[in-house]
Every structure is written in structure tokens, then in C-alpha cells.
Design a protein around this nucleic acid. Sequence first.
DNA 1: ACACGGATACTA
DNA 2: AGTATCCGTGTC
Length: 191
Amino acid sequence: MNMTAEFFQRDPVTCAREMIGCELVWNGCGGVIVETEAYSVRNDEACHTFTRPSSREFVTRMPAGTAYVYLNYGVHWLLNFLVRGGSEDGFVLIRALEPTRGIEEMTRRRNMTTIKNLCSGPGKLTRALGFDGTFHGRDLLSDPGALLWHPSAAPNVQACRRVGITRSADFPWRFVAAGSQFLSVPADRRR
DNA sequence: ACACGGATACTA
DNA sequence: AGTATCCGTGTC
């Protein structure tokens, strides 16, 4: 079943957990989401809204489900979905995919031959799918080139600490498909 | 272990 | 203008 804006009208933690197992496809390239992180506008110092007025304005003005794409470390585009209009606003960061479609094109974009690490990181998957800054603010849910598909059966999801952040680092807001071989870092990592 | 790199938001 | 910070990756 295709996802709609209603999915993103709840809270970031619920949305991040339930996006595990969903299939994300853009123009024939993509895979099953195996790793996400939740970021909240409330009490979460790692969320962009905590330090960026432009991010707070984005949350205020854009509808639920809008793509929030930004450049990290001057190198990598990172893909988030806006969560808004439910009990709590925020974002879901897409951190890793298990590749299923367009593998030939993705391996070409990533200049590699194996699929294990093709989309095993938030910057890797945007490169593989061809995402860049022009996707910021776009409505992918109703875009004919995009697919965001619910799984037929709910996968086994494991919660753990978020990766690579310095503030609010103890929140257990990273979600992974249990036992997946396509994660950015193992699920039992501690910081 | 470390270089790479640019947008954003500060201080002036 | 200059500076600090940032949700990462590939190669050393």
C-alpha cells in the first residue's frame, strides 16, 4: 500500500519505527528501508530546528511528508521526511536501504560492484538514488517518479541510539531491521 | 586515524 | 568578512 501524508501526521518516533520495512524508490532505483532515525522539534538538541531558524520555518510552512534534504559536511545529501500535524513535529532521517531495484544504475552512480554497502548510509543512499539539493521541499508522496510502499508484513524492528551526533545522543531513536546486513553501523554500537 | 567540503548561523 | 559547527564517506 502506498504511503500518504496521513502517515506523517503522528510523531517522529512512531513514523521512524514504522518506516522500517517500507520500500523507497525513485525513478526505478531504491530498496527496502532498514535504518531510520527520529528527530523532534521538542527537547531534541540534535534536530535542525534547535539551531536553525530556516528549519523551524520549514516545519511551520510545509505539509506532512515533504522531503527535507540538506548537505552534510559539505559532501553528502541527507534525506529526511517532515513529520507534522500530529502529537509532535519533527523529521525522519533515512539512513540505509537494502537495495532491490535499479541496482545496475546505483552501482554505476556509486562506482562499486557489491550491493552490501551500496546504500548502507544516509549519504550513500542519496548518491545511489540520485538525490540532491533540488529535492529539498518537494512532495515525493504524490510524485509519479517516487514510490513509498508499506510492507505487507511488519518486520522485526530494533531501537538503539542515534549515530554520529553530539547533542541529545542518548535518545534511543534509531530504528533498524533486526539482523539486517545493510546497515550503516551495527545495531549494538554504543557511543 | 584523518582529510575532504559547503551550507547555515553566529559575531563584527 | 571571518569563524564554529554539522544527522558522513573513502582512503590512508
